[in-house]
Design a binder for these strands. Structure first.
Lengths: 168, 168
DNA sequence: TGTCAACTTGACGCCGTGTCAAGTTTCGAA
DNA sequence: TTCGAAACTTGACACGGCGTCAAGTTGACA
């Protein structure tokens, strides 16, 4: 998806795009912010915090984030593709990923409070692991390369995350 | 890492590179093949098949592949970066990933033969999951972004893969 | 009617890949 | 010892995509 493609889709000249966004990276960042707003992400995040037990909270978090990935997949992939060559894209991506990590940390913390965090992993390690498990790349691999359905993705992520992180 | 960087490192002109490799994709592919040869991958793969139980085999496979990722990380990342725009790089990458998937499938199959594959996942799904878990991207996230040591990476992958895939 | 912002067309520079042409070095076989 | 082919060099060029610039057009509205 080149700048000229976006301009064409917006029925605008390529140059007019640069009147609104200084460069490709900021356009993509603005798009993610717009999507977040459109889907009222903040509100839904707060809802997911209402879960009682750590286990429920882990489940709710996976439902939420796993369910949101499809809507940000396109722009995430574009951001991901340029983040190694574009400093600003890198910062924007890290910022975004930091927010996701925070959600993972909250779920892990709730688990720990319940005394249900698996032995053998520190809280930080469990957070790292969950964050990695729920990455956009993994979603892409399972849904696109392996042909999983969205529902199956959520189910399996829930069950495997529980198996890996919840003490039995 | 541009073609000119590679040429400089090889103490050769950029154009001379094109006398040996038709394009960037084939250079990267040839490099992975060379690395495989250098590390006698085939032989080590056969060794890992000697494990007795499915559980041991899963462990051996994670040790092997997880331990090999660091040596192919650089070139894998380069291949990964261009695979969305270069048809040939895409094919080469898929070919490579197919081989890794095969290793995952063998471990899952051995688990199944022992009656130790977790209920709730088909053999194909378990293979998909393991393959995704052991992706180069996940290794990168945990080692580079999260700062894990290589040893810890292997340990956690072994324990979480076992938790997610082995029935208790 | 005049002004200003939003937009247009059309050009350009930069950078990295890949291509081409023409000349030079190296080296082994006759 | 010389000749020829292979490997390499320098220096140029086209192409695609991003970002920039200049100059002209449109349209709203005071």
């Amino acid at each position: 998806m080149r700048m000229s493609d976006i301009a064409k889709a917006a029925k605008i000249s390529r140059q007019a795009l640069y009147l609104h966004f200084p460069n490709r990276a900021e356009l993509l960042v603005a798009t993610t912010r717009y999507l977040d707003e459109l889907h009222e992400i903040e509100g839904k995040l707060i809802e997911s915090r209402a879960a009682n037990s750590g286990i429920e909270r882990l489940s709710a978090w996976i439902n939420f984030w796993g369910g949101y990935i499809p809507t940000v997949y396109g722009v995430s992939k574009a951001l991901l593709a340029i983040k190694d060559s574009d400093e600003e894209a890198m910062l924007a991506w890290n910022d975004r990923m930091h927010a996701v990590r925070h959600g993972c940390a909250a779920a892990v913390s709730a688990l720990k409070d319940d005394g249900k965090l698996v032995v053998g992993l520190s809280e930080a390690e469990a957070t790292d692991f969950l964050w990695t498990l729920l990455s956009v790349r993994n979603w892409e691999m399972l849904r696109k390369d392996c042909g999983w359905t969205q529902d199956r993705y959520i189910e399996v992520m829930r069950s495997t995350a529980a198996a890996a992180l919840v003490s039995s």
